[in-house]
Design a protein around this nucleic acid. Structure first.
Lengths: 131, 131
DNA sequence: CTGTATCCTGATGGATACTG
DNA sequence: CAGTATCCATCAGGATACAG
């Protein structure tokens, strides 16, 4: 059951914080979570096209970890051609305040990162997302 | 100034989120931030004793990264023996809501991590911390 | 007291090509 | 369409010893 790849937490103050951080600290995880939060359900190649610089290997890998950590749901439709849909679990959706807080902080201090405007998308609180 | 070790953010949705995450995703960073948030100012060995399984090399490393990212302040007192004090910057203190949100989520879903109770310290909102 | 210097291992992330 | 298979570079993190 979802043993996290991140090996150990020493259960000091900040333990559960580190545990939570470790679940979203993969290279593409935030982006994936963000898209799923915004768009609800996406197929493998839909995600791939949206991220576009990600390799299939990495996308698979990140998706599998997110799934193992109980943050996303993977639904395979038995048909030809294959159809696999990804969506957030309830647990994953509960990350929303964290992602928002992170984005708020990141946007406020974006100067630290060498002027990379984030440009568009202020995150529309995902249309009909609050199940 | 403060070029982050994490090489690149593709500035897609989730970009600033990833940027923010990368600043706190070091192995001991959350713990360090947490202690500084709780206790205000700590010396090198005070942090070391509190974390206790951390090696001096790692502590130095994490502290330097946090400093480079503008989250903590390092104050050297020119005296013998040396005295170096670490504290949060305003920017670092602004991480509080994030850390709290992460802890809340982590505590709520702690079962995912293989039953590690977090035990004590529910984080007392740091005694006199709100400068 | 507050660190550095070396050396080392495993995990992370990526390029490229191939498959049911 | 939705992935696997290989191979490879880099880096985060740690053990141990030493230093100003």
């Amino acid at each position: 059951m979802a043993k996290t790849h991140y090996s150990r937490f020493d259960c000091q103050p900040g333990c559960s914080v580190e545990a939570a951080v470790s679940l979203i600290s993969g290279k593409w995880k935030c982006v994936v979570l963000w898209y799923l939060l915004e768009e609800g359900t996406l197929r493998f190649n839909e995600l791939r096209r949206r991220i576009n610089t990600i390799t299939p290997r990495m996308l698979t890998h990140q998706l599998r970890e997110l799934e193992a950590d109980g943050l996303i749901h993977r639904e395979v439709h038995a048909q030809v051609p294959p159809k696999v849909e990804y969506s957030l679990t309830a647990r994953g959706r509960e990350l929303t305040p964290i992602l928002m807080a992170l984005k708020a902080w990141g946007d406020a201090h974006i100067d630290l990162f060498g002027s990379k405007g984030t440009a568009g998308k202020p995150f529309t609180t995902a249309s009909g997302e609050q199940k």
